[in-house]
């Protein structure tokens, strides 16, 4: 051991405060956590789905891209305000810092409200894990047909769709009751094939030999097959179920990923709320710069996660 014995007693450690170092380490665990979530999503998405049984498009699962984009914008704004809060503390303007934190809290709440609206849409359309109809071969198919029949009866009784769709609903219900239809015919008449070109740009119509999963009309029909105008094309607000291959897997991944992200957002909001309470009691000032910085690190990380979730779930 060759150490000299008379070194000066210098302090050890990184020039980082404990809180900040611990936050970076916590973020390491969080990075691994979200990597596992995103990684398994990529695997589910790119693994089993095929050309004839593709992963659902946002349109299939009632996901509006622009809502995701707005949410991205909201989170970016909140990231800016939190960094400006820290900046204000450093230039000595505690009051402005508190205002920025308040805006951050508000933006975070807006994010969660938009998310809640999206979730509500999923619940309304039954896009929930384990409840999406995928395969229409028996017995799933007959379960699906019964389900549509109930939905049609509900529409018949309570209305809620436009006249054209209402007429088509009545016809479909009559045909189901008469026992004329196979589950996949019901699916085709609910969903329609008219707007396929618009909703599936760049996708070729595929005729497949794989006859096991030919329940999705648009992707397995020959090019010259007649187009059917579906009830959902007449009235997009009709609550009628249709088959979505891998819809359950999509919903599982969607809720797991956005749910954990939303939980993290909520956690951050709690800390911002605590800061506001401190400010309200007059105990918030430049001495809290480290608290703001550490919380900010966390908040930016939450933002970064969303920066990846948005394209992965809504766009690509």
């Amino acid at each position: 051991m060759i150490h000299a014995n008379d070194e000066p007693a210098v302090p050890m450690g990184l020039p980082l405060p404990n809180g900040k170092l611990a936050m970076w380490l916590f973020l390491v665990t969080e990075i691994m956590f979200f990597t596992a979530l995103i990684g398994s999503y990529l695997i589910y998405r790119n693994g089993q789905p095929t050309a004839s049984q593709p992963w659902p498009t946002p349109h299939d699962v009632h996901l509006a891209e622009w809502i995701g984009a707005v949410n991205t914008f909201v989170l970016i704004c909140s990231s800016l305000t939190v960094v400006l809060a820290l900046w204000s503390l450093h230039v000595g303007n505690s009051k402005r810092a508190v205002q920025y934190i308040g805006v951050t809290l508000a933006l975070g709440c807006v994010f969660l409200v938009i998310k809640a609206y999206e979730y509500q849409q999923k619940f309304a359309h039954g896009i929930l894990p384990g409840r999406v109809f995928e395969k229409l071969d028996s017995p799933h198919g007959y379960k699906y047909m019964r389900h549509v029949q109930e939905q049609l009866e509900h529409i018949e009784k309570h209305g809620g769709v436009n006249d054209k769709a209402k007429k088509a609903c009545a016809e479909l219900l009559a045909d189901i009751r008469a026992g004329k239809l196979q589950p996949k015919d019901v699916n085709e008449r609910v969903r329609g094939t008219k707007s396929i070109k618009e909703t599936n740009p760049g996708k070729e119509f595929i005729t497949t030999k794989d006859s096991t999963y030919v329940d999705l009309p648009e992707r397995s029909r020959p090019k010259d097959a007649p187009m059917v105008e579906g009830i959902l094309e007449m009235d997009t607000h009709a609550h009628l179920s249709y088959s979505i291959p891998f819809g359950n897997m999509w919903a599982s991944c969607y809720f797991a990923m956005t749910g954990f992200h939303a939980l993290h957002v909520f956690g951050g909001l709690v800390v911002f709320a605590i800061m506001l309470v401190m400010a309200w009691r007059g105990r918030f000032g430049p001495q809290n710069a480290q608290m703001v910085e550490v919380t900010g690190l966390y908040w930016h990380f939450v933002d970064i996660v969303w920066i990846f979730l948005f394209p992965l779930l809504y766009l690509v």
């Binding site: 665990t29 691994m32 990597t35 596992a36 894990p129 384990g130 409840r131 797991a256």
Partner: peptide
């Protein structure tokens, strides 16, 4: 964290019907 994800996924499989 990776195990945590796996554990959560399996408990979701068992409780709310994910697959």
């Amino acid at each position: 964290p990776v195990l945590t994800v796996a554990l959560i996924y399996q408990s979701l499989d068992k409780s709310i019907g994910t697959t």
